[in-house]
């Protein structure tokens, strides 16, 4: 019971922290490198605990992010749905990749996410973004091993302490 509660706290805590990290500012030069935190955390949980993750959850997290971001209601929801759907579909294969291949797969998913965002923005009438727009997925892929190991470690600690 205790263990279940701790794991649930970790799950929701990491998602909330990802939303918060999305808002935390960076120095101006690093700004285009800011990874898409909710996507990384959702990806981790999709790979490691798919029984808790569904498209509905992605939709909810996306709506929360939209509410905080204030750009367009449903924008991030759509991006996260697609991301989680793809990750769930290829989960079995992604899980057994070595870390560097997994990071490459994450890069592909995040680039796809950027293309989707670009399509939505252009459709809404925004101008073509600068080249720095494409840097964030690379930063995300580079950070992926650390996010993965950190969350894995936290999860393992919870398991050990209760077991």
């Amino acid at each position: 019971m205790n263990r279940l509660r701790a794991r649930r706290a970790l799950f929701w805590g990491s998602l909330l922290l990802a939303l918060l990290l999305m808002l935390v500012p960076l120095p101006v030069t690093l700004l285009p490198l800011k990874p898409y935190w909710p996507a990384l955390v959702l990806l981790y949980w999709t790979l490691e605990a798919p029984e808790h993750v569904s498209i509905g959850l992605a939709f909810g997290v996306g709506l929360g992010a939209d509410l905080l971001d204030g750009a367009l209601l449903g924008e991030q929801a759509l991006r996260l749905i697609v991301l989680v759907f793809l990750a769930l579909r290829f989960r079995s294969r992604l899980r057994f990749f070595p870390m560097w291949q997994q990071a490459l797969a994450v890069l592909a998913l995040l680039l796809n996410d950027r293309v989707l965002l670009l399509a939505m923005r252009l459709f809404a009438g925004d101008p073509w973004p600068p080249a720095a727009y494409w840097l964030a997925p690379f930063a995300g892929a580079l950070l992926w091993p650390f996010v993965f190991l950190l969350l894995d470690d936290l999860r393992a600690r919870l398991r050990v302490r209760d077991g």
Binding site: F59, A71, L73, G74, E75, A77, L78, I81, V82
Partner: peptide
């Protein structure tokens, strides 16, 4: 299910764009 949710998100986006629900 994916298509349903995508449609839902698209409808939300269009409605928000028109009515400023956000």
């Amino acid at each position: 299910r994916l298509l349903t949710y995508i449609a839902l998100a698209a409808v939300l986006m269009v409605l928000d764009h028109r009515n400023g629900w956000l």
